[in-house]
């Protein structure tokens, strides 16, 4: 069986932090610890009037891809609650296929150790 992963189509990540808080609830983490964190690229001016600005949710070492939820037939909590629905969970092959149709701003994190 292939490894699973988390796809982030960050073209649409609006930086709302729902994944961060949902994850904190799921893993019962205190302030200062997170299972997923929101990285920010920019905002920076790349040409006059043109701003590059991306939010990229990134799992931390504490992320277990919501083992318990997945076993219970649910999506990982970050995927479930994402306001932009820009996260997917599944086998890496399927995510790679999905990513190939999503343009430049997409990234896949794997659960492989």
């Amino acid at each position: 069986m292939s490894a699973n992963g988390l796809l982030i189509h960050y073209e649409y990540c609006s930086g709302c932090s729902s994944c961060v808080v949902a994850c904190k609830n799921e893993l019962k983490l205190p302030v200062g610890k997170n299972g997923i964190t929101l990285l920010q690229n920019g905002p920076r001016e790349i040409a006059p009037g043109k701003i590059e600005w991306d939010y990229i949710p990134t799992p931390t070492a504490l992320c277990n891809m919501c083992e318990d939820r997945v076993k219970a037939g649910k999506q990982p909590t970050c995927v479930h609650h994402c306001l932009s629905k820009c996260m997917e969970y599944g086998p890496l092959e399927e995510l790679a296929k999905s990513a190939s149709q999503k343009g430049r701003k997409v990234v896949i994190f794997t659960s492989q150790s």
Partner: peptide
């Protein structure tokens, strides 16, 4: 909303 929630509702407890 189809399952989606913002961080304020998620921090309701």
């Amino acid at each position: 909303t189809q399952g989606r929630l913002c961080p304020r509702c998620l921090d309701l407890p």
